[in-house]
Write a protein that binds this DNA or RNA. Structure first.
Lengths: 165, 165
DNA sequence: ACTGAAAGACACAGACT
DNA sequence: AGTCTGTGTCTTTCAGT
């Protein structure tokens, strides 16, 4: 049995998945609305084992979530920005405070702790430049212990998928 | 009516969404498996209008996809790398060739055309360092017209969400 | 635009191979 | 581990307000 899903980079060992499991995962990543029956036909099984395999992968945390993916350009969040941040101090408390602040900002979709010159990389969405400027000055820059910030603007999306297998 | 969803950065105008639509979107982003009935209760409507609103948002491309999100650490893809790439030449054909090559690489989950020193930013997943090294040397570096490459390793995930509203 | 009802399809559990 | 069968619930449509 796998342990519960953790926040942050999980260190859980990989779980053994056979070809049928991978085929099911592949289909559910493409379309979470496929019925068990539709999946069963494509992987050449009946509905019961497919249902059980899906349940097992959910329980093991392999399937983290079923989500509707929204087009950001259609809900007035057309601007995407990659944002690099370094902290002034690097003790444990300072890091934890920053993390809590970032997690509370709805504009920040992703935040990674990275190697190199900066400490964190953020993916931010905003309506436009004015909106992003407002986020930068009034929200991000207000976070305690913040050092340098560098913004890189996304001019076009070449590829965007969640298909891991 | 909205136009068809485009690949790359869409320039479509935002669509008007009322509070009920946003509430429905919020719920479906959290859990695409909520039943229409469950959503209807939370937004204080009956099933029919909820069903119609969801259908409308699907048709308008606001809801792009329903996807099962998989934990990359549990399927032997524990290493995430941010990868910066510049091209040697910047004419239209060279760009198109690069894009086609990148889209065919399963290790590359995301690729953005960016401002600044580099031309593209890639999000790559691999099993471990050996696997990434193999990707770098045998796949990425083999792409035509490739200039500089810089890899930044993700040491921890602070936040990762698709919740746009 | 919404409500309520009604038909068909589906998820899920059980008995069995 | 898998197939088959059944029950309750859901999606989806339609008449009515």
């Amino acid at each position: 049995m796998a342990k519960a899903v953790q926040t942050g980079q999980s260190t859980d060992k990989s779980v053994q998945l056979d070809d049928k499991d991978l085929a099911i995962l592949r289909l559910l990543q493409q379309n979470a609305r496929y019925t068990v029956k539709q999946i069963a036909e494509q992987v050449h099984l009946s509905t019961t084992p497919v249902h059980e395999r899906i349940k097992r992968m959910e329980d093991q945390g392999i399937i983290k979530q079923y989500a509707a993916l929204v087009d950001h350009t259609k809900i007035n969040k057309g601007l995407m920005v990659i944002c690099y941040v370094s902290l002034k101090q690097h003790n444990k408390t300072a890091g934890a405070t920053f993390i809590t602040a970032i997690q509370a900002l709805p504009e920040v979709l992703e935040c990674y702790n990275i190697s190199g010159e900066f400490d964190f990389m953020l993916k931010v969405v905003a309506a436009d430049m004015d909106d992003y400027y407002n986020f930068h000055v009034n929200k991000l820059s207000e976070v305690e212990n913040l050092g340098n910030v560098q913004s890189i603007f996304v001019m076009g999306i070449v590829k965007q998928t969640h298909q891991l297998v």
